[in-house]
Design a binder for these strands. Structure first.
Length: 211
DNA sequence: AAAAGCTCGAGCCTATAGAA
DNA sequence: TTCTATAGGCTCGAGCTTTT
């Protein structure tokens, strides 16, 4: 029967057994119906199926064991492929969002510089009362075309800050991700395949996960 | 007598060897 | 690369022994 050399498995004749296609087909059929047969059921299978009669019960047991293992590996591989596809798509969207936000930051930095400049000029003008031309020309403000003109008073600056904060918060809440632990997966960001997005979120992560 | 502890066999899972 | 087979570690249930 089976002998051991301490490192691998060999049959008596020095060769591994390769089950015939007919035998494999019979085993597969049975596996499809019952992936975890009891020893009684396996013996019954050997009795009922003549082409399996030359296979030892132990070998049948091992075959089912390995078959389940192969199935599990196959399922895991396909699950990982699916997660990979989602991550790739999410990465693309996040890169685009990052790019857009960086451009926005550059623009805001530029705007901030303009406002600072303007605030300085206004302060100098209001202190220097001898310079009428500056005071009277206060209505001719320079501003970017994207935003309506706003005064540089503390109230005006506060409104800009408020608007920026509101925009930031809407983005932050719009991309909120809840990590949900799934059976068989470690808790935390490793289990990326199962991110859950709150209803109504329109952020980038939400769009990515909806793929 | 009932609960607790121990042993043993069967089976599962993962990693690995080695032939086909 | 795939498939068959083994090793080793682990769990679980059954049966037996010991303790309370």
């Amino acid at each position: 029967m089976i002998c051991k050399d301490g490192k691998g498995a060999m049959m008596d004749n020095g060769k591994y057994v390769r089950y015939t296609p007919e035998q494999v087909e019979a085993l597969e059929r049975f596996y499809h119906d019952c992936p975890k047969p009891t020893s009684t059921r396996r013996q019954q299978l050997i009795r009922e199926c003549p082409i399996l009669s030359n296979i030892e019960p132990k070998q049948i047991k091992v075959w089912f064991q390995n078959r389940r293992c192969r199935e599990k590996q196959k399922n895991e591989a396909s699950r990982l492929q699916s997660v990979n596809r989602k991550l790739t798509a999410m990465n693309k969207l996040l890169m685009e969002e990052n790019d857009r936000l960086q451009k926005q930051v550059s623009h805001l930095v530029y705007e901030n510089g303009c406002f600072r400049q303007h605030t300085q000029n206004t302060t100098v003008a209001t202190k220097d009362t001898s310079c009428d031309s500056v005071v009277t020309s206060g209505g001719q403000r320079q501003s970017t075309p994207q935003h309506p003109p706003r005064d540089a008073s503390p109230a005006g600056l506060l409104s800009i800050a408020d608007e920026t904060l509101t925009e930031f918060l809407s983005k932050a809440t719009g991309t909120a991700i809840e990590w949900v632990q799934m059976p068989g997966m470690k808790p935390g960001p490793d289990s990326i395949g199962i991110v859950a997005i709150s209803h109504g979120c329109t952020g980038v992560a939400a769009r990515a996960c909806g793929l």
